[in-house]
């Protein structure tokens, strides 16, 4: 078992004929992911890698291939439209890799998706990896081993750093979920923590947060109330100055709120050991899993 994606996922790539879409489709297929279709408006009838059919619309792709998961590589200005199209075509899980989608677009999209019952991961995220089964997105497959630690993170390469350090210590991952660095997004920490709590394969969870917003504080409260599995954490941005947006649209300390110190305090109060740097997470996990 794992969460969200497995070898059974039937994946559709929106924006499959673009540079990024094509490159990562190759990587996903090489990893063993079942990529069953692609969509690029105006390019229906073409093929990618000689075996993946391209459709003009998501509805046509779903009808022909039974795709249930979509990964979105389309440019930011068309991304909201692409996510809504996937939801309307009956896709159950949408993973939006695209960076730079206007926040008001995302508020409208998340509101609509909630009504449709569609799950959204991202945007501005690296996607999902269930080691040994499937990857949906851009996480390099070879940096993680299959295992029993769930990973949830707001940051891409920082996640790579952590799961790679775990691999070097012989520790594996059940699923890693990149929820993305935008202020308004689909799944948040709490949603993913709940899934890991219910997943029989997952025995411990790594939570990787960063400055800005209050998702980590809410996650800490959830962990205290509802999690029986051990959680370890890391928060990036302890040295970030207030009022400056640190790359991610969501990573900004506003009005003295959303600082790393507050988040670390909240996690520690929920009995979550917090690593001082990313590689230390692997050490903390070794301690916890040995207990």
């Amino acid at each position: 078992m794992s969460i969200l994606v497995s070898k059974k996922s039937r994946v559709l790539v929106q924006g499959i004929t673009g540079r990024e879409g094509r490159f990562h489709t190759e990587r996903m297929v090489a990893y063993g992911t079942q990529v069953v279709a692609g969509v690029t408006p105006g390019k229906g009838g073409e093929w990618v890698l000689d075996r993946i059919p391209v459709f003009d619309t998501v509805a046509a792709a779903v009808e022909a291939t039974g795709a249930d998961t979509s990964v979105i590589f389309v440019p930011a200005r068309f991304a909201a439209d692409a996510i809504l199209e996937a939801a309307d075509a009956g896709i159950k899980l949408v993973v939006a890799i695209t960076e730079g989608i206007p926040v008001q677009d995302m508020m409208r999209v998340t509101t609509y998706l909630q009504e449709k019952g569609t799950t959204l991961v991202g945007p501005n995220c690296p996607g999902l990896l269930t080691p040994g089964e499937a990857k949906v997105g851009i996480i390099p497959g070879n940096i993680a081993l299959p295992g029993n630690v769930g990973v949830v993170s707001r940051s891409g390469t920082l996640t790579y750093e952590v799961v790679y350090a775990m691999k070097l210590r012989g520790m594996g991952v059940s699923t890693t979920v990149g929820i993305g660095g935008d202020p308004v997004k689909g799944l948040d920490f709490i949603d993913v923590l709940r899934m890991f709590e219910e997943d029989p394969q997952t025995e411990a969870v790594v939570l990787i947060g960063e400055i800005g917003g209050s998702s980590e504080e809410q996650a800490a409260a959830f962990i205290r109330e509802h999690m029986t599995k051990p959680v370890v954490g890391f928060i990036a941005g302890q040295t970030a100055p207030p009022g400056k947006r640190m790359g991610h649209a969501g990573a900004i300390i506003e009005g003295g709120e959303g600082t790393a110190a507050e988040k670390i305090k909240a996690l520690q109060a929920a009995n979550v050991p917090v690593a001082r740097h990313p590689e230390e997470i692997a050490d903390l996990l070794v301690d916890i899993l040995r207990r």
């Binding site: 993170s153 940051s155 891409g156 390469t157 990787i208 960063e210 941005g237 040295t239 001082r276």
Partner: peptide
């Protein structure tokens, strides 16, 4: 010089942890 916003912040933090001061994000 780092790729990725989260990792860039974590790199600044670890410099500070070992007694240095980052010049930039």
């Amino acid at each position: 010089m780092v790729n990725g916003a989260g990792l860039a912040m974590a790199t600044m933090d670890i410099i500070k942890l070992y007694g240095g001061e980052p010049a930039n994000f």
